[in-house]
Amino acid sequence: MKKFLVSYILIFLLGLTSFAQKPALAGDAFAHTYSIVAKDAKTGEMAVGVQSHWFSVGPLVAWGKSGIGVIATQSFVNPSFGPEGLMLLEEGNNAEEVVETLINNDEGRDFRQLAVLASSGENAAYTGKNCVEAASHITGDNFSVQANMMLNDNVVPAMAAAFKENSNLPLAERVVKVLEAAQNAGGDIRGRQSAALIVVGKDKVEASWKDKKIDLRVDDHKNPVQELARLLKTARAYEYMNKGDLAMEAGDVNKALEAYGTAESMVPNNLEMKFWKAVALANSENFEEAKLIFNRIFEQDENWRTMLKRLPKAGLLNVNEEELKSLIKQEPIKID
């Protein structure tokens, strides 16, 4: 009985020793994924793009700060790598020093994957020896691509090639091409679920809400990269809507109509874009053309008719009562 008890105690103590040697990963998100951190050499913008078979991967993996840099932390994610890494960059550490500091102070380093890119474009990456294969990274001029738990070893090289081959595109669109290339090469062995894209500027900003130029997330979707591309196109269309609004404020109706028209051509089924284009037409006294557009909008959704009635009081529609009545009811306008 004593021998059995001693043996049991020895086994128990060995078990404790073995457990103590394992990294404390309890609670760490299991976000195996592929990602890119990159800089546009022309504009100075920096971006992170990511896709994973994990719910809402963006907030875990993608980190960035204008004028400082961008970071992707993945595999068994250590979320502290994001804010701490950006702080280290802001303090003047280079990308390699940031990676070394974060990894060397982490007991779970063998399970981590990390990429850091500074505003200079200089970058560094790390792939722990226990990351699930296929796992690797490639760093190059102004970019780093990394992945783990991929279907094959072709994913990361395909991402690097896609970044180099699409240098003619804006950074955000270029990053989407990289994510598409990863998926086409095999992608995550488990499939697809979520994706995210952030873009920050080359210069520091004081207002935190101005930090991210683009911040898009697809938290749960059967084809997240495709949905991310759609959202990016929509975001670009709304950039033209904003340009149209600014042109209207400046009294340049033709420029506003051009911007609104571009936005509408990019997202042709968006009623709001059609609506504000028609408002701009009405404000420039192109009533008949405005009425045709309003009529098509009202046929699809009556709420826009109510919306139109409210605009004069808000100072957004410069028409008199007779003109407003005609726009709402599609009656002929009598102009003296």
Rank of each mutant, 00 (worst) to 15 (best):
G187C: 01
I189A: 10
I189F: 05
R192Y: 04
Q193A: 00
S194C: 05
A195I: 02
A195C: 11
A195M: 07
A196K: 01
A196M: 02
V199H: 04
V200Y: 05
V200T: 07
G201M: 07
G201P: 05
G201S: 10
G201V: 05
K202Q: 14
K202R: 09
K202E: 10
D203S: 10
D203V: 04
K204R: 13
V205S: 09
E206M: 05
E206I: 10
S208R: 09
S208N: 06
W209R: 01
W209N: 06
W209P: 00
W209L: 08
K210W: 04
K210A: 09
K210V: 03
D211I: 05
D215S: 07
L216V: 09
D219R: 05
H221L: 00
P224T: 00
P224M: 00
V225C: 00
Q226Y: 06
E227D: 03
E227M: 03
E227N: 00
L228A: 00
L228Y: 03
A229M: 02
L231A: 00
L232C: 06
K233E: 04
T234R: 14
A235D: 15
R236C: 06
R236S: 15
R236E: 15
A237L: 14
A237Q: 14
Y240V: 07
Y240N: 14
M241C: 14
N242K: 15
N242F: 09
N242P: 00
N242E: 15
G244W: 08
A247I: 13
A247D: 08
M248C: 11
G251L: 13
G251E: 13
D252C: 11
V253G: 11
A256H: 15
A256R: 12
L257R: 15
L257A: 12
E258I: 13
E258W: 10
E258F: 12
